[in-house]
Write a protein that binds this DNA or RNA. Structure first.
Lengths: 195, 195
DNA sequence: CGATGTGAAAGGTTTCACAGCT
DNA sequence: AGCTGTGAAACCTTTCACATCG
């Protein structure tokens, strides 16, 4: 949704209607209006929403403009891919550190982002006031690593490992199990025609 | 869920109760039982579920055992990471091809999986009867690439690009916008304590 | 008119309570 | 007693109809 607004703005569109937004997002116009209305009114009934105004409005209400610091824990292929992901940088998130338990690996990765061994997680997170973390370590290391992050005072974790992390107070955890996603597609593509 | 069952089996657990499954999955026991019951009964009321029996039951009912072929389109860092992802291989999915529009890139990637230039997508997918695809190309290339896959007769697409693909009959599309996931964590970790 | 914002209906999912089996 | 399977209740989300505004 936000990405679409940015695209529209780049293309020089001044306004956009809920119908059009819905079409491009693959949902109906009701939902679009409902969602937008939760953030308070803004539309100028005649010509739809003013694109840049709506973008800023959403951005502000959701706190998307407040830059937040992120660290990547586990620099395997997936972790490294995220470390270099450009789209993150342009979305208010700054990657400020990377961690891996394999010290040799830290030296082979080319980046300007500072990298540290895994045992320093708690210290660095605490010192740098790092708010969010990406967990891309093997399943068996997930619980231990998460504990270190939480001890450092992390506020949110995006967990790519298949292990389900035990919830901690004040820490928001989002699990993304890639293999499960593939299974979903695999199963559902067999069954029905509609999404 | 499925991953947990495999783990339990490895650890030699013979049976498991819905309460215990729920605890480890971070949901309550009601949901676990409800979900399992949709696939038909199986539990032996006294000692909970027999782990391996349940695993096979789920596997069979969901068609997880029928090996399906997958191709990866767009061999950037993310695409390459998935190409090498071992956990996919052990979950009934076989990666049978990779595609990229940059021919030079195809030569630099070390793998046993056959790689092809992007313009051959339709041909190879059709010829190989490839069922599922991973789309990890830049947003502006997503629509065109998806069209080629669909022309080749693909059944399901896991779309990692931020572009929303227009739905096609008989093709199941699952969108995974990584930046959106980070925004969700970023926003929600600010607000509430509970997940 | 064309478009938004919103209360009410429809539909679906999660939670619960409890019968029934070992 | 301990646990499963399931109908009913509570809850939430999506869909719709329509009043309202420029």
């Amino acid at each position: 949704m936000f990405h679409l607004l940015e695209q529209l703005e780049e293309n020089g569109a001044a306004t956009v209607s809920s119908t059009e937004l819905g079409r491009q997002l693959g949902v109906n116009a009701y939902s679009v209006r409902k969602d937008i209305s939760y953030l308070g009114e803004i539309g100028n009934c005649r010509g739809g929403y003013a694109v840049s105004k709506l973008k800023n409005h959403v951005s502000e209400k959701l706190g998307l403009n407040t830059g937040r610091s992120v660290c990547i824990v586990g620099l395997g292929r997936l972790g490294t891919a995220i470390l270099h992901y450009e789209r993150l940088a342009v979305s208010g998130l700054t990657i400020v550190a990377g961690f891996d338990s394999n010290i040799n690996k830290l030296e082979t990765i080319r980046t300007n982002i500072p990298l540290y061994p895994a045992h320093e997680i708690t210290t660095i997170v605490k010192r740098g006031g790092i708010e969010l973390a990406v967990l891309s370590v093997p399943a068996q290391a997930a619980a231990e690593t998460a504990k270190r992050l939480i001890d450092g005072g992390i506020r949110g974790i995006v967990n790519f490992s298949p292990a389900v992390l035990s919830p901690a107070p004040g820490v928001f955890i989002r699990n993304i199990d890639l293999v499960a996603e593939f299974r979903i597609v695999s199963v559902l593509s067999l069954l029905n025609i509609k999404n």
